[in-house]
Computed example of a mutant assay.
Amino acid sequence: MTNNLKSHLSNLLNKTITNVSPVSGGDISQAFKIDTSNNAYFLKLNSASALNMFQTEAYGLDLIAKTNTIKTPKVIAFDSFENSAFLLMEFIESKQATAEDFKVLGKQLAALHQCISENFGLDTDNYIGSLPQSNTVHKTWGDFYTDERLLPQLKLAKQKDLLSDAECPSEQQIKNYLESLFQNIKPSLLHGDLWSGNYLISKDGTPYLIDPSVYYGHSEVDIAMTKLFGGFGHAFYKAYESYSPFDVNTSARIDIYQLYYLLVHLNLFGRSYYGSVVSILRNIKS
């Protein structure tokens, strides 16, 4: 962080910054803890071109917070300065989650998913990782998930020569496969990228969601992502299901929802995700 940016942030906060230390913040942006005499803040820093990404992240955090179901860090500001873009938030001092913490997280996520809309999608596009994510509104979940989630990632994978035409199902094959699985699904507000690095448990046991990729979709999408890489305790799922029960098609839908995230990881990180992607694609084509 440059001295000029540090001075700019100090003026923005109207406080003297006493310490700046790098912290773990993911693969996309630099992250820092900023200490003042009486508060701590979390700063994400990237190139100036990332301003829209930070803007949509701030929008998602605010949208979740306004549901009063689960907390998100308060956004202080997002802006560009010199050749950088930044997102400044309150700093949440976190701890390892206990079984009781996971129980509360599961209950509050289920409450978030009770916040519904008339349509699937969102009034603005955003990002999944560093990739653009289209949220064009659809009346049906099958159309949204096919057209705004699977097809764009399949197209990108083919452009990157990570998948061949022969390995990818057609739009009609996808929609035919999904039709029987996607019955009576309501548009729930989703975090959109709920892996174990995107929740925090504060020192007093309060769950917080961070780094959202929000839109209105099927609630099981968030559950699918929690199961893809692990990091959520048994108490989380037990609590969640007591408020939002699963059904006989949940397992099959989990695979389909994980396909989107696996395609994203294939496009971002390469062929180590190829086998998992192709295995699910074969089920769709069969």
Rank of each mutant, 00 (worst) to 15 (best):
D211C: 11
E167G: 02
Y41L: 05
T56C: 03
Y260S: 09
L45N: 05
D123V: 02
R149H: 05
Q258T: 07
S213R: 05
F236C: 01
S84I: 00
L268W: 00
F91N: 05
G230A: 13
K227I: 07
H218D: 15
H8Q: 13
N38K: 14
L5V: 09
D165F: 12
I254W: 09
S80R: 08
Q114P: 00
I76T: 04
Y59A: 11
Y127F: 15
N135F: 12
I92F: 06
A99F: 06
S170R: 07
F236A: 05
A224H: 03
V264C: 09
K238Y: 11
S49F: 10
V221Y: 14
A48N: 03
S130V: 05
Q114N: 15
Y261W: 04
K285E: 06
K158H: 10
W141S: 13
K44C: 04
M89N: 08
K66L: 09
Q258D: 04
L162E: 02
D123N: 14
I76G: 01
T56D: 08
N39D: 15
L228M: 11
D255L: 10
A110C: 08
Q30E: 15
L150E: 07
E57A: 04
V75H: 06
S24H: 03
Q258G: 04
E148Q: 15
N126Q: 12
G142M: 01
R271G: 00
E118N: 12
T72L: 06
H8P: 00
R149Y: 06
P207M: 01
S279K: 15
T250W: 07
Y257V: 09
D255C: 05
T67D: 11
H191D: 10
D62F: 02
P207C: 03
E100N: 12
S170G: 13
L200M: 13
G270M: 07
Y240F: 08
D143N: 15
P132H: 07
N283K: 15
Y208W: 03
E57L: 06
T2L: 08
I185L: 13
L163R: 11
D165K: 13
I254D: 10
P245T: 09
Y260T: 06
P73D: 05
D204R: 01
Y237W: 11
Y240V: 04
S164R: 03
A97F: 08
K186D: 01
D125S: 14
Y240A: 02
S84R: 12
G121D: 09
S251W: 00
S244L: 14
Y237M: 08
L51I: 14
H8W: 08
I284D: 02
L228D: 01
V23P: 09
I34W: 08
G205W: 05
R149Q: 03
C168K: 03
L190A: 11
Y260L: 12
E100D: 14
E167W: 03
L61S: 06
K95M: 01
A224E: 04
K238R: 14
K74F: 09
Y216L: 02
D255Q: 14
V277F: 07
L151P: 04
